[in-house]
Structures are given as C-alpha cells and as structure tokens.
C-alpha cells in the first residue's frame, strides 16, 4: 500500500506548484479545490490502511465540509472583484 500513498503525494505536488506561481486568484482557487479533495481521499486511504474507523469518519466529514467552505470563499472573492 505504500506505493499508493507515494503516488498520491506526487499528484499532490502538482497543484501546490500551481498555487505557488500566482497569476490569477481563480487558478489558485482551482488548486485549492484539487488539494482539498486529494487530501481527504488520502485521509480515507490512511484510515483503510490502518483499519481505523474514526479516521475514516473524519475523512468523510472533511471531504464534505471542505467543499462547502470552498463555495463560501468563492462567493466572497467574487464580491471583492465586483467593485
């Protein structure tokens, strides 16, 4: 199972690099949404790897709530660009 996590870390580095070279706030937001879903899937992988029920619950909650936070943030940033 180790190689799976190493591969996901490699996939996680791509959006981090994208967020580092800032051009447009929306490109950074895309990188953030990608990272948020990737980290919660990684939490699920770890929970299955260790056969731990609690970690799995936390992973699912982060997966659903992180997306809601992203929508809130997207609307606030849209309002700032309007004026």
């Amino acid at each position: 199972m180790n190689w799976i996590l190493l591969a996901t870390i490699a996939a996680l580095l791509i959006p981090i690099y994208e967020a580092w070279q800032d051009e447009n706030i929306w490109q950074t937001m895309l990188a953030f949404s990608s990272i948020a879903s990737k980290t919660s899937i990684m939490i699920l992988i770890v929970s299955v790897l260790r056969d731990d029920w609690t970690l799995g619950v936390v992973g699912v909650i982060i997966l659903s709530v992180g997306n809601a936070a992203l929508m809130l943030l997207a609307h606030i940033i849209r309002r700032t660009n309007e004026l």
């Binding site: 997306n67 992203l70 940033i77 849209r78």
Partner: peptide
C-alpha cells in the same frame, strides 16, 4: 457505510462546486 457516503458526497459536491466556481470566475 463510510465509503458509500464518501462516494455520494464526492459525486454531488464536486459537481456543484464545479458550477459554483465557473459562475463565480
């Protein structure tokens, strides 16, 4: 139950988030 919940929330939330991001950007 946990993983099915993860599947459902991925399918629904990511679709909605795609629409919201496109609308806002």
């Amino acid at each position: 139950p946990l993983l099915v919940l993860a599947l459902i929330s991925l399918a629904i939330w990511n679709t909605v988030l795609g629409y919201v991001l496109a609308y806002c950007s």
